[in-house]
Design a protein around this nucleic acid. Structure first.
Lengths: 157, 157
DNA sequence: GTTATCCCGACCTCGCTGGTAGGTTTAGCG
DNA sequence: CGCTAAACCTACCAGCGAGGTCGGGATAAC
């Protein structure tokens, strides 16, 4: 399993926000009801998105959440990173974050028979990161409206 | 974390086998010592690779394991699939295996606001599968011998 | 001041990962 | 013929993180 439900719920949450009219905050309760997600858990997930600057919140009655930017400007690499914490394909990839989602293998490079699997995992990580960064929230919102066929990948690399 | 140590140890095991001269079985004990891996655990991992037809075993004294095919003909998608069981990016992707590593989302398509995240996870899965299938064991073996620079990706798709 | 909402920290349960233990076969070798 | 090195098998176990719950705050609209 690559991703946890945090990513799943978080993305769903963002999609719901993306479907909403601008500057109209929507409450987590409404989203939890609509998507049938546990409210308390969703709150913690929303906090992750807020800390990452992807959503804004309004407190008090009639408050709620809304996107901090246009859905077209929200790419999924940033989203998944915010939700999952890191995108390490393997345990040895330590969080030496270079500010894109990249993360490095911590294995001592004992100069000679170094960590050979590193090549493989790094390729996978880069591939995933590229896929995620090429998918925007706007696409997902549109997809849910039943337009874009699932096969339609973004510009084939 | 995308992959578990099963994938890590399994790939390492295969690399060691790939470094060995042809038709010369090598014992798990030797590999466990060389790579500092738990022997008992490694046995179970080797069993997975054998069941997938990736390695062959010889029992008894002076026995051991060897690759079932040339390292050039072993792609990593098959390997990781054998080791991890499936390559589902998300829990809802149920094991409806279509015989490539693909696996499908099980969410009821409640015709309308269906599983919008499915688009995203499917893209990721396809990307990972493609990356894995483009990397062969031979490449990793060569890499460990200190030749190929890490940046050298395969033919950019 | 009541109600709807965001916010926050503590807690809990369950399954899986990563491993160990202890055996049973199989086969080379003296 | 028996010793030994290896594959093979099954059961067991500890720790941890995922996935949630709970209860209470702070805040703002009405």
């Amino acid at each position: 399993m690559f991703f946890t439900t945090k990513a799943e719920y978080g993305v769903r949450l963002l999609i719901e926000l993306g479907r909403q009219p601008q500057d109209q905050p929507i409450s987590l309760k409404a989203i939890a009801d609509a998507d049938n997600l546990p409210l308390a858990y969703l709150e913690r997930i929303a906090a992750l998105l807020k800390r990452a600057g992807l959503v804004e919140s309004t407190r008090g009655a009639h408050g709620g959440y809304q996107l901090a930017r246009a859905a077209e400007d929200i790419a999924m690499d940033e989203v998944v990173l915010a939700l999952e914490g890191s995108l390490a394909p393997m345990e040895c990839f330590v969080d030496d974050r270079s500010d894109d989602g990249r993360v490095l293998c911590s294995h001592h490079d004992d100069s000679g028979r170094g960590c050979a699997t590193k090549l493989l995992w790094t390729r996978v990580q880069v591939g995933v990161l590229r896929t995620l960064s090429q998918t925007t929230l706007a696409e997902l919102v549109e997809f849910q409206s039943g337009k874009v066929p699932p096969a339609a990948a973004p510009a084939p690399v």
